[in-house]
Design a protein around this nucleic acid. Sequence first.
DNA 1: GTCTATAATCTGATAGAC
DNA 2: GTCTATCAGATTATAGAC
Lengths: 192, 192
Amino acid sequence: MYSYLVDTADRLIESTRELLWERGYVGMSPKVIMARADVGQGSMYHHFRGKADLARTAIDRTAAQMRADVSALLDGPGTATERITAYLRRDRDALMGCPIGRLTQDPGVVADPDLRGPVDEMFRWLRENLARVVGEGRDRGEFDETLDPDRTAAMIAAVVQGGYVLAKAANDPEAFDQAVEGAVALLAAQAG
Amino acid sequence: MYSYLVDTADRLIESTRELLWERGYVGMSPKVIMARADVGQGSMYHHFRGKADLARTAIDRTAAQMRADVSALLDGPGTATERITAYLRRDRDALMGCPIGRLTQDPGVVADPDLRGPVDEMFRWLRENLARVVGEGRDRGEFDETLDPDRTAAMIAAVVQGGYVLAKAANDPEAFDQAVEGAVALLAAQAG
DNA sequence: GTCTATAATCTGATAGAC
DNA sequence: GTCTATCAGATTATAGAC
């Protein structure tokens, strides 16, 4: 796997990113990371200090990618309502869950400030950007004046993260869609 | 710990319940379960077949307790709006997260039908009951006729589960409250 | 940079004595 | 019912040769 990636460190990082998503920090081992990257033990400990170092690098890369993806939607064309709806309805594999959000349930991540830090920053950034768009919509008269941007932003982010939980529990992506559409409908009703 | 519990099996179950909540299935080991319960290895393998058996028993007990707690709120007094708000604002240690919801992020639970089953049933039950109350509120004129009970129920359950994710990411219970209050405000606006 | 060897500890059990 | 002994394999590295 990852044979298309020439760089050894790069293959290790991609392997770690996938495993963090699939199994979390406590659920993955250096051995499995190396096997998936097709990299020997000596190479791994040459490029990284260990499991935590690899995880930190992988989390940073995933967070950066997510910021770019979300920015494209929230700063794209359309009204505030349209951009928020685009974020909510964004194409997702609901059964995979959120590669950053799942880390909040991981005792190994929560216990290590170096690992929790990027997760914290990511959600802080997300909520700020959602709140900004909600505020824009409110100022343009799309939403009621009384709508609180911060709370609404937190609700939107929570519905997405919770939607993954429902989908995984039911082993059915439809549960995610139901939650998202429930939120879209309430926001639309509020706008009208 | 658990010295007040006379029964050995009971102490093992309580220990497992706590560890599943704190560390998840892949993050806990029989050794730690036994140490916390102050029970020897021989006793543990006498009462249970192993880690999975213990976890199954612990999850069932936690799910039963949660059903009772939620029923008390949803089937209690008050309008539909009041009961749903009571569920959303229910006293919680947001930084602890949901003892059932966190299991959906656990590869060891998701991979084992015996362990995922009770989690699936719990959320199915929760969504059905929330949908029933939303439906009652709609029929009584508390909510707009166009409000979809199933989607709204999924949204409510998702906001709670996602609220835990935000709180853990920020290491601050306030994030949970923000998400919940965002949902309460949207539901209230819908009612008006 | 990559390889193999080594190691202390943990994991999740089984076996059999008491 | 509870105890200790034992076990094969995983975990998370370090050491030193190549």
